[in-house]
Amino acid sequence: MHAPRLIRSPLSIVPGRVPARESVGFPRARVIEIASAEADAAGMSTAVQILLACQREGDSVAWVQPRGGTLYPPDLHAAGLDLDALAVVHVPPEAGGVGLAKAGELLLRTGAFGAVALDLTEVRPPRGEAWLGRLASLAREHDARAVLLGPARAAASFGALVSLRVSPRRRRTRPGRHRVELEILKNKAGASPHFEGEWRAPEGVR
């Protein structure tokens, strides 16, 4: 007599319908950190692709940056984002990383946003992990993505409550075309994000 076997079967997916929780491979209800440790990183481009995927799922999205930040809307438009459905929050510089985290919390708490990106590349993040805990619980409660852009050349993660930490790097394939490869630095969500195909670049980039 044979011992009972656990039979694993692949999830059936209706053709043409992508499970909403796994579009572009970045899981919902999680804190996602994008590390820009290398000079050839594509951190902001990756964040924009996550926001775009959320918009394609029908969700509004938000970007939080210090006042006078470096977000460049014409490129976001070129990437396909609907700028009318992108709330951009400008936090006064004196509020620092604490202000950015607070803005992220207030946005996630509404439950109206599918993704909120915090641009922490130029500011010191808040101390401790309480802010991450609040972001993680709000992301979980509202089935949203909290996307953190880490400081340039940061060696360490923001904290243990980050579910997925990726380092996107750009590589030229031919003039004006690039590939972005994701190095997974931490993966507590069991996700497998990756980008396929070539990326366009602004006109004039070789």
Partner: peptide, 16 residues
């Protein structure tokens, strides 16, 4: 905030 109407089908774009 408006309901999103993103463009579909574009290849990904590197932003500045």
């Amino acid at each position: 905030v408006a309901r999103p109407k993103p463009r579909e089908g574009d290849a990904p774009f590197l932003v500045r």
